[in-house]
């Protein structure tokens, strides 16, 4: 991945042909990309919404189909695993439900990242739009689906009468952090996938493994002295900042420190990568 730029073999441009003084620095072009994506929010709000409409047009339940199938999965797995782990259902099912819904939201950023730019080839080749706009569009439609799935959580909480109370408000900043990390990851994976078409498959299997090693279907306390398996898993902490508040718990400060660090690293790494390779995206797709 390192030197991906094509060096010109023409004699007029011996040193890669980049006369830096003539071009704006890459960082400022990347920032301009973000700013112009924000300015064109109406476009991506519309496109993201259309993506949802298009997928479920003329089906009666629409995106609620996802919700229904997820609800069935959560209830059946919840009942089964509560038995297997010998945990009371009213404790385990809400836990599993929030974990599932939140993980489903976050993992879609990773799984669908492969098509982020590739599927928009016709747009990228015909019209100049900020690349971040495609990220915003994808994020927006995932958020809409998340909102649909959130209904399951409300149903479960209502059924078990386990209202989380005030801590639930902390889920909002948590969701914001999770979304930001998801959007950054989707941008990174989307770019790499445009160049290397095998990446989406790799990501697909990785996400499957992550699903099993991250405490979603099981509680971290079953790890006992092997807690490090959860502690060193960044996805566990990302999950926790949304899950804990929704279950009525205030996440420990340490969790926020970890998540803030992850976000910062993610932001800087993806930012640098984007600034460096942004101009190659139209060549890659």
């Amino acid at each position: 991945m390192r030197d991906n730029r094509i060096k010109k073999s023409s004699p007029q441009a011996p040193s890669g042909g980049n006369s830096a003084h003539e071009r704006k620095p890459r960082a400022s072009i990347a920032i301009a990309d973000v700013v112009s994506a924000i300015q064109q929010r109406r476009l991506w709000l519309r496109l993201g919404w259309n993506d949802i409409l298009q997928r479920y047009r003329r089906s009666v339940l629409g995106p609620l189909w996802l919700t229904v199938s997820m609800a069935i999965m959560i209830v059946s797995l919840g009942l089964l695993y509560a038995q297997l782990f010998q945990i009371p259902v009213d404790d385990f099912l809400p836990y599993l439900c929030v974990g599932f819904v939140v993980w489903g939201y976050f993992s879609s950023f990773l799984i669908e990242a492969g098509s982020l730019f590739v599927a928009s080839e016709s747009y990228i080749k015909q019209i100049r739009l900020p690349y971040v706009l495609y990220v915003c569009r994808a994020t927006w439609s995932k958020l809409i689906i998340f909102a649909h799935n959130f209904v399951i959580y409300l149903g479960v909480v209502a059924y078990f009468q386990s209202w989380p109370g005030l801590p639930a408000l902390l889920a909002l900043p948590g969701l914001l952090l999770l979304t930001l990390n998801g959007a950054l990851s989707t941008l990174l994976i989307g770019m790499i996938s445009a160049r290397f078409r095998d990446i989406p498959q790799v990501i697909g299997s990785l996400v499957q493994i992550l699903f099993f090693i991250t405490p979603i279907m099981w509680k971290p306390d079953v790890l006992k002295e092997r807690m490090f398996i959860a502690e060193w898993n960044p996805f566990y902490h990302l999950l926790q900042v949304v899950r804990e508040p929704l279950l009525g718990e205030v996440p420990p400060a340490a969790t926020y420190v970890v998540v803030a660090t992850i976000t910062l690293v993610n932001f800087v790494a993806v930012g640098l990568f984007f600034a460096r390779y942004r101009e190659r995206i139209s060549y890659w797709v």
Binding site: G16, G17, N18, S19, R23, K125, Q126, R128, Y283
Partner: peptide
């Protein structure tokens, strides 16, 4: 010209 391909060299 449309800014879709950013040139490898030149401006």
């Amino acid at each position: 010209m449309a800014g879709i391909y950013e040139p490898v060299s030149g401006m």
